[in-house]
């Protein structure tokens, strides 16, 4: 699981019009995914146009179950490569959601050594401060 070093700010998400709805939902502890209703295609990260049909007005936001499996992961073990706001060691996981898209995130109450590809996880939310909410992943029963 990730723990933070006090006093060092975490770099904030860069929020613009293309991903605003995504981060607004996260703020309300909900995960939404961009979806093209013409192609029935989930898109992540959020973008201005459907890469399949090139339409800009077919994009909508659909709630996600937030459930998936760990697709891959890295463990940060030395401070040479890690950002100092995070206490070592910590893991960053790539989670394949049930909808098929992949999200990066941290873990909650999982020791880096216990992570394995295929581990069933689900999303949870954490209010970092007044105007930043992030998400991380915890173990769930497969």
């Amino acid at each position: 699981m990730v723990e933070y070093v006090k006093g060092i700010p975490i770099m904030r998400p860069y929020i613009d019009q293309d991903n605003q709805a995504y981060w607004d939902a996260v703020k309300q502890h909900k995960l939404v995914l961009q979806h093209c209703h013409a192609c029935d295609l989930y898109l992540h990260p959020p973008r201005p146009m459907c890469p399949s049909c090139n339409a800009q007005d077919t994009l909508e936001w659909k709630p996600s179950s937030g459930k998936g499996q760990i697709y891959s992961f890295v463990n940060f073990t030395t401070d040479r490569m890690a950002y100092p706001a995070f206490k070592l060691p910590y893991a960053v996981v790539l989670v394949e959601l049930e909808e098929g898209v992949r999200l990066t995130g941290n873990t909650h109450q999982i020791h880096p050594d216990d992570i394995y590809v295929g581990m069933p996880v689900e999303i949870m939310f954490e209010d970092m401060d007044d105007d930043m909410t992030l998400y991380r992943f915890k173990k769930r029963d497969g």
């Binding site: 019009q17 201005p48 146009m49 800009q56």
Partner: peptide, 13 residues
């Protein structure tokens, strides 16, 4: 009123 990513895609399309 849009991002540069948005209008770049729009122009190419």
């Amino acid at each position: 009123g849009r991002t540069e990513w948005y209008t770049a895609c729009q122009a190419v399309k």
